[in-house]
Amino acid sequence: MEVETNETESRELETGKVKKPEKLKRKVSKKTKNRTMQEVLEAEGNNEEKGLSPENKRPESATAIVDSESNKLEPLKKVENVTLENKEPVISIQNVTMRFMISTSDASGIKEYLIQRLKKKIAYRELLALDNVSFDVFKGEVVGIIGTNGSGKSTLLRIVSGALNPTSGKVVVDKKKVQILTLGTGFDMELTARENVYLNGSIIGYSKKFLDEHFKEIIDFAELWDFVDEKVKNFSSGMVSRLGFAIATAGGAAEILILDEVLSVGDEFFRKKSLARIKEMIHGGSTVLMVSHGMGTILDNCSKAVWIEKGKLQMIGDAKTVCRSYQNMDQR
């Protein structure tokens, strides 16, 4: 029964998105809020049933803590006193350190890697990609991560999404709610757009039924009807990222959306459209964590910014302040 109601709600969200009258949108976002509250209460109720200690009576208790050392899941022990209204951290990054054994030669792809490996050109050195990074992201926040190339931004996103386990420290997040969107979309170049929608969709977690129902919408959004049965290898990079974006965001408002430099691709029109979609998701109660080199994108969309430099957390706070200090970096 619960599932049913949510489905109708998300459908309303969808219609709200397409027709986008301002009133409807507001109404929807209110509804989503209600739903969230309901979920929180539910989570609480269930915890009591399971006999967990009252400290854990927060929605985070519905999440798992992945401890890299032991790979065990353990309950949250310390919880600050935060009120339920909009204040629960949905992502909590705690002392995350990531060490890579990285090759000294620059092998960008698997093929090159193999070739160089064969030639025995690869030597390893240790790289500290993230050094003791901690911060919290709260529900409904849009957090931008900035920093120069190779400062560990993407690594951080991958750790949050659960693809990587940190060397030490932990990330508290409900992985099931996370939707990650990166430029490397994982498309199979030999397959057509249609086949890739189904392949990628299934990997992300959409069911066949869901994809059948939303296929039209996805292609509509990506504006690729002329190329639907064309192999992706013949697509331009902009078209590929459009398709990737359309698939990843087809599920309506993912509760936690992670964007890795995706808002700066495609032509200007598509960029506007995708920004609009992200904004709708934010209205719908999504929490967004994004990496971008475009200061404009960060300033326009983010309520908070995190500056990571060479793996270290340099600054965290209001987007404007952080961006300004970042841009003034070389002058110092």
Partner: peptide
């Protein structure tokens, strides 16, 4: 798997029925 993680995915599958969950 701990109780907590199981619970987490239950909540997730309630809110988003098209997501995969054990």
């Amino acid at each position: 798997m701990s109780k907590l993680s199981e619970h987490g995915s239950e909540v997730a599958s309630n809110s988003k029925d098209y997501f995969f969950s054990e």
